[in-house]
Design a protein around this nucleic acid. Structure first.
Length: 288
DNA sequence: TATGCGTGGCC
DNA sequence: TGGCCAAGCAT
């Protein structure tokens, strides 16, 4: 299958299958796109949807968020996970006000210079908010390409330079953003990691992976389990602070994590990350 | 480049 | 049941 044929089929499929997501509405601002991309980093769409709506209602512009305490961003982030993203989004809003007059920048270079904005997010905002022809290479796109063109179950590791080059070369000459969101959507709802729905795939007749019998992925090293880790301890501690409007005493943190050494290490880490602020009286709070 | 970083749903 | 997975980033 030629690349243009792949693009046409996926784009046509998207026209009839796209999910109705609030950040895809025609009148959404670049800020709204940026907020959605930050929230969607490793968090499923279903959980982002209500959080994005509440966030945009409260802070409809970078300036609005920048005027709020960073801790309020962390609190509003709720249980989306990876709360450092909330802190970085707040820092990004501040940088947008200071460096760009309050308007989300449109160039990939300026976007990627913002806290919490990496290669993917910069490309996505440039494409979806500003119509740029950037290669949007997220986990969905990588998986679709790996299967259709390489015949393997998954892309592995971090994106390589050759992968980025190939992704750029695959962009159509016209309306690259729609192509990109269409490939992402295919990966998100059809060409999913487990139990892909190949019978409803628009490119099933030309997928190398399907043609070779959907070979299983290579066994990857499994990461650390979650229970008992510093990560879980951090989550517990921050959860206490998130739920309390007032600063909390150390004793209130002691009760949510039994191991004192690990608790102290986790708390130190949160303070070092700027997610928690120790007060002179020994209490703790979200950052002002 | 490998690792640490939250949270919850799924099979 | 518990490992896998979800529109990554920073170091």
């Amino acid at each position: 299958m030629t690349q243009p044929a792949f693009g046409r089929r996926v784009t046509r499929w998207y026209a009839g299958a796209a999910r109705d997501l609030p950040w895809r509405a025609a009148d959404v601002s670049p800020w709204g796109v940026l907020v959605s991309e930050a929230m969607l980093q490793q968090t499923p769409v279903a959980r982002v949807r209500p959080a994005w709506l509440a966030w945009m209602s409260r802070w409809p512009s970078p300036a609005a968020l920048a005027a709020a305490p960073a801790g309020e961003a962390v609190r509003a982030w709720g249980r989306l996970g990876y709360p450092r993203r909330a802190l970085r989004l707040h820092a990004a809003a501040t940088a947008i006000v200071e460096r760009h007059g309050g308007a989300v920048p449109s160039s990939v270079e300026d976007l990627q210079a913002l806290p919490g904005v990496g290669n993917y997010t910069a490309a996505a905002v440039a494409a979806f908010a500003f119509g740029a022809s950037t290669a949007v290479l997220d986990t969905n796109v990588r998986r679709v390409y790996a299967r259709v063109f390489d015949g393997v179950a998954n892309a592995t590791g971090t994106p390589t330079a050759s992968e980025r080059t190939a992704a750029l070369e695959r962009l159509p000459a016209v309306d690259a953003p729609t192509y990109s969101v269409a490939v992402m959507e295919l990966g998100a709802v059809v060409c999913v990691a487990r139990s892909p729905k190949c019978t409803s795939c628009p490119v099933r007749s030309d997928c190398r992976w399907l043609a070779s019998g959907r070979p299983a992925p290579e066994v990857a090293r499994r990461g650390q389990s979650y229970v008992g880790t510093d990560r879980q301890a951090r989550g517990r501690l921050l959860g206490v602070l998130r739920e309390s409007v007032e600063p909390v005493a150390a004793a209130a943190l002691d009760v949510v994590w039994h191991d004192p050494a690990q608790r102290a290490r986790a708390l130190d880490g949160l303070v070092a990350d700027g997610l928690v602020e120790p007060l002179a009286d020994g209490r703790y709070r979200l950052p002002a």
